[in-house]
Design a protein around this nucleic acid. Structure first.
Lengths: 234, 234
DNA sequence: CCAGTAAATGAATGCCATTCATTTATCTCC
DNA sequence: GGAGATAAATGAATGGCATTCATTTACTGG
């Protein structure tokens, strides 16, 4: 009655979501899926890149897929579930290719930098991944497998491999946040006189205008971890 | 009309919030503050310890203070502002007492463990602190000053002090998340056969039943950072 | 052709942070 | 000691959010 557009009553056909809908069909079941988890994941990524994580709402995601918000719940059980899909998708983008090919320290370096870079654009996922059972994230699990195999091949004592990976990962996550911090985060403002040592050290760092400070800190910490862990190898 | 309780119309007097209201009076200005930032902070901490961070809502916080939600906005500009108050309060609880007293490595160890323990109970604050300009958090700034002074006294090259602290902090934040992870986070479930190296390493770790795995990983990473950074001292 | 079902709709729910016009109580100044 | 200013409270209203549910649609296999 209210709307003037035609075809408003036809629910199913819905103009297939612009890009890669990928609509897989599961054998022996009703097909015609307008939506699936892959499509939701890529639409969410696009939405995030356009509007950031504040723009990632179930309503917005549904709109970008040409679908009602409630329709999403046939494919994901909650918004957190969407975040898990995103996380797992991103895990597959982390570079583990050097493990088993390059020397151990080179591989770890490459993995860690890549891991940090991927998630520094997606810090809202960190609280999710840090606590996510790996069984719910197959691509994340695959990443761990590659890294673990690399450590083992490099002669790492088996009982320390997981601990070392967990420690490296903790450092990577924290560093990912650091990337997003404002440049002037360490400007003490009017409190500067009360913290002379700190202010001096901040000023001193500012003089070295080579790399981004966040990259210097990451490199410093990562190299310490690599050389510290390197001594554990048999 | 609806309510049956007496005295409902009297707005100001409000039964002073049970515990430490601390009501400071600012000279030369109207006093009678039922609310202030200290009171809000401690009420928020109590609320969190009772109901967790999901229970920390502006409405709930106001209720626990015997006040209307809108009243809070006379003292904080947003909920994020409340989180900043919390963060700064917690920063003051981090143990920096060993800097300048104990040897450098002992002081760093004590600081880092304490820092992690404090924030592992308050991980929702990590995205806040990681990006918070220090000028808005005086107690946090004081912590940095103490740490910086300790590094300097220990002969650390000035241009690397901030980077080292940032790296340590990144590790601490990531490790704080790790503490909150479920025990079975590394259980691969039915995918276990596809990740044999990983599964083996996880099982191997499980055999060593001494400490919490999260503490083992933290110790491993922290000691690597300490020994790696230790070589920088002059 | 029929019955079943996956997948869509859209209206409704409840919670949330935040805003605003208004009121009250106190302080400062004359 | 009264006038005016102001900090600090109220409570009603707003808009956004994730999520639920009864209902409808169109495809499927028997």
């Amino acid at each position: 009655m209210l709307g003037t557009q035609a075809a408003e009553r036809l629910p199913m056909p819905a103009p297939t979501p612009a890009p890669s809908a990928t609509s897989r069909r599961r054998a022996g079941r009703p097909t015609a899926a307008v939506l699936d988890q892959d499509g939701i994941t890529t639409a969410a990524l696009q939405l995030i890149s356009r509007k950031g994580y504040d723009g990632l709402t179930m309503a917005g995601l549904a709109r970008s897929l040409g679908v009602a918000p409630s329709a999403l719940y046939n494919h994901v059980s909650s918004k957190d579930d969407v975040l898990v899909l995103l996380e797992d998708h991103l895990a597959a983008m982390v570079d583990v290719s050097a493990f088993g090919v390059e020397p151990w320290d080179v591989a770890v370096r490459q993995w860690a930098w890549s891991y940090r870079d991927v998630f520094s654009e997606h810090t809202p996922l960190i609280p999710i991944i840090a606590v996510l059972p790996v069984a719910n994230a197959p691509k994340t699990l695959a990443m761990y497998e590659a890294v673990t195999a690399g450590f083992r091949e490099a002669g790492f004592p088996e009982e320390r491999i997981i601990s070392a990976i967990v420690a490296l990962e903790a450092f990577v996550f924290g560093a990912a946040y650091d990337v997003t911090a404002p440049e002037d985060i360490f400007d003490a403002g009017n409190l500067a006189d009360q913290v002379p040592n700190f202010t001096a050290a901040v000023d001193r760092l500012a003089l070295e205008k080579h790399e981004r400070p966040t990259d210097v800190a990451f490199s410093l910490g990562l190299e310490a971890l690599i050389s510290g862990f390197g001594t554990l190898r048999g």
